[in-house]
Computed example of a mutant assay.
Amino acid sequence: MGWRRDGFESHVGGVGVLLADGSEPGPVYFDLGSGSHFHESRDWWVYDGTFSRATATTMRGSCACGWRGERTFPIDWQRVDPDDLATYDVSGPELEWEAHMDEVATRAVPLPEDVAGLLRRLRERLDELVDDAPLPVLKAAGELESVVTFFGPLATRILTRHEEFSLTRAAELLGMTENAAESRLRHYEFMDL
């Protein structure tokens, strides 16, 4: 769940909350019965003060990369319908996250237009074929995997051997969180072994 933007999948956005003292609460744990595992949640609506939970007073935009919105929006718990949470207005935090994503997209390296166009046309064509001709789609997927298997490791080696390589900078230019960028680089690094 959460807000997502195509091309920036690791930047999952959502509603973050703050307590009256301005602090961000930790996760809420739920005991679902016997066993040693407890479910945890950071969903905004679990901080409603019931069952001795912390009570959030304001919400703001939040992102998996660690970004937090500067603007806060009051939570009126009297207007929150626990049976239909989607009716509560969280557009303020979402718009803040969208602005954050605009900044992420601005800093990211753009694909060359011809490559972006090829990928867009390929996606559209495979979408047209998949229902009636799944075997050619599977064959195309295999061809794409061979392209990735060759170029992913090659690009990773060239990038990481560069003396000015920085994971933080690579993540920014890829439009990813550092964890996602590190995971992708490691995946490609060991792909051809």
Rank of each mutant, 00 (worst) to 15 (best):
G66L: 03
A56K: 03
E163G: 10
S36A: 15
T57S: 15
D21S: 07
R53D: 04
P153C: 07
A133F: 14
L85D: 02
S41P: 06
R42M: 08
D84R: 12
L154G: 01
D31Y: 07
H162Y: 10
R161H: 14
D76E: 06
L185S: 00
T87M: 04
L118M: 07
P27H: 10
V12C: 10
P27Y: 05
G35M: 11
S10V: 07
R42W: 10
H11Y: 03
L129N: 04
D84W: 03
E96W: 02
A64R: 08
D81F: 01
L126C: 06
D102P: 00
E182W: 11
A180R: 03
F151N: 09
W3G: 00
A86F: 06
L19K: 04
L154A: 14
P74Y: 11
V12M: 12
Y29Q: 13
E94K: 12
P134K: 06
L126Y: 03
E172P: 07
D48K: 04
S34Y: 06
L174N: 00
R5G: 00
E164C: 05
F190C: 02
D81H: 01
A133E: 15
R120S: 14
E172I: 10
E164S: 15
E94D: 04
S52H: 08
S10R: 09
R120T: 13
M191A: 15
M59F: 09
E143A: 14
A116D: 14
S62I: 02
A141E: 06
A180N: 02
A56V: 02
W67Y: 15
L85F: 11
V104K: 04
G35F: 11
D43L: 13
L138S: 09
L167C: 07
E103C: 06
S166W: 09
G117M: 05
A133M: 13
A64P: 00
L185Q: 04
I158C: 01
H162C: 05
L129C: 12
R79K: 15
R4I: 06
P112D: 11
E9I: 00
G49Y: 00
G61Y: 00
E163L: 00
P110K: 15
L18I: 05
S62Q: 12
R4E: 08
S10A: 08
Q78W: 01
M1Q: 08
R5F: 04
P82Q: 07
R53C: 06
H100Q: 05
A180V: 03
K139P: 00
V104I: 15
T177A: 12
T168P: 00
F190A: 09
L135N: 09
E98M: 08
A180Q: 02
L167Y: 09
P93E: 05
S41W: 10
S166V: 06
G22W: 13
S91F: 02
F73A: 09
V15E: 07
G13K: 08
V147P: 00
R60Y: 03
G152I: 01
R42C: 05
A105M: 01
D6I: 04
E172L: 14
S62V: 04
W3H: 11
V137L: 06
P74V: 11
G7W: 05
E24S: 08
C63K: 01
G33D: 12
E94V: 03
D76R: 02
R125A: 14
H100W: 05
V46I: 13
S23L: 04
A181W: 00
E182V: 00
D48E: 01
A116R: 14
F190S: 15
P82M: 10
V104H: 07
W45V: 02
G142M: 12
